[in-house]
Each structure stands twice: as C-alpha cells, then as structure tokens.
Write a protein that binds this DNA or RNA. Structure first.
Lengths: 107, 107
DNA sequence: TTGTTTTATCGTAATATTGCAATATAATAA
DNA sequence: TTATTATATTGCAATATTACGATAAAACAA
C-alpha cells in the first residue's frame, strides 16, 4: 500500500492530522514565522525570504491555504498573506484538551 | 529532487516541523488520544484499539517515541506507553509565541 | 497593443511515507 | 528445554511529498 487509511479514523482525528501535516515542513513553519514577524500582512516578498524556488514556495503556500492556516487576499498584482487566527485557536484548543486530560494521569 | 532541504532552515524550524510531522497521521493522533483516554499508562493493548496491523502500529509508535511525544517502559512481556508532558509543553509554548505575535497584528 | 511583474500550474525526477506479510527478538511460563 | 506472548525489524509494493524548470495566467504600466 502506501496511502494512509484515513477512512478508518474519525473526522476529528483526520482533521487534526491534516492541520499538523500542513505544519510538518520547515519551509511552512518558516513561512508562518515570517508572516508573524512583521506588524502587518505580507504582500509579495515571501519568495525572497526563503531558499526555495518560486514554484516550490507557491506550492507550500497553497498547502497552508488549503489547511486554512493562512489567508490570501489579492492586492493588485501581489497577494497579501495573513495568519488565520481561527485555525490557531483550533490547534490550541486541541492541546488544551490534551493538557486537561494529562492532569488526570499518573505520568 | 524530493527530499526536503532541511539544512536550509533553522534548528528551531526543523525541530517544530519534526514534532508536527510526528502528529501528521490520524493513526498517531488516535494513539495519543487513546493514551489520554485512560487514567493510567497503557500496557499492551494499543494494537486492539486501531484498525491497523501490528507491524504498522509498531512503526507509528516508533515515530511517536523518536519525536519524544510518548515514552515506553518495559513491563515484563509488555511495554507501557505514556504521553511525555515535556514535549506537549514545547508545542504549547510554540503556539503561545504565535498567539503573542498575533496580538500585534492587524488581521 | 507590448512589456513587466507576480503568482499559479504542469510535468517530472528524486525521495519519503504507509501498510503489511514474514520473520526475528525478548521475556516469561510450563 | 519448548511453548507462548508481546513487540520489533525486514523487505517490498503502493502511494505521497518535495523541488524545480518551463510555462501559463492575471494585473498593471507604457
């Protein structure tokens, strides 16, 4: 085989796995970090910030967009990218649940 | 190509990406969830909980162990698995940083 | 119109992941 | 010793990901 048996798992588990998969590459972590490092949204200059070719970055941005981790709005010729706080919330809530359950355990 | 250019990114970005990669499969999310769902550590019955063959689960457990997300201690014939709270802390701190930086932004 | 700039898509090669049967290993029991 | 039980490893096929050159598309400028 090779494909993951996602149909065997719950929607919740698949959804969280998809979010983490979107964050599972250093280039995508670096993109998120860069978007956070400036005060406003970033219009256009992400390609110059990373040591990857433009089509590769475009592909990584697409994955982050598909996972709703970032949002992109067209501004003339460029595209402005921003973090989507709602998705950050979702991930934080997941770890809040983990933290809560860990309190009841012996480890 | 195909291999990710991890040497081009910072240690911090690579480390976070590795943690998220370990959580990027629904079976591994389900394993973590199961370990959290009982009051004590789990000795042995993870294989019966998931719709995957024993070698596949062993492989997923290995990845979670390599990422320090779970710990395993030998108990006679079985192995007891537990969540490693330190790694959960590390991930939570990362999102704490993201949350902090998001407050200074316009989105 | 033509040219420029920015981002997306296509095509493809290199590499990684997923899943499992078969087998091996390790600890205990009989 | 020989079983038995629990987990790990090996080997391989199927599939997914990563990266990038070439090219396309979209918006604007001259």
């Amino acid at each position: 085989m090779g494909a993951s048996k996602s149909e065997s798992f719950s929607d919740e588990h698949n959804e969280m796995a998809s979010l983490f998969k979107a964050l599972s590459h250093p280039a995508r972590i670096a993109i998120v970090d860069y978007l956070l490092s400036v005060d406003s949204c970033i219009c256009g200059d992400i390609v110059n910030e990373l040591p990857l070719a433009q089509p590769t970055i475009s592909q990584h941005l697409k994955e982050l967009k598909n996972a709703n981790i970032i949002k992109g709005t067209i501004e003339g010729t460029a595209i402005c990218y921003c973090i989507n706080p709602d998705t950050i919330d979702k991930i934080e809530n997941h770890f809040g649940m983990i933290r809560h359950k860990l309190k009841n355990k012996c480890c």
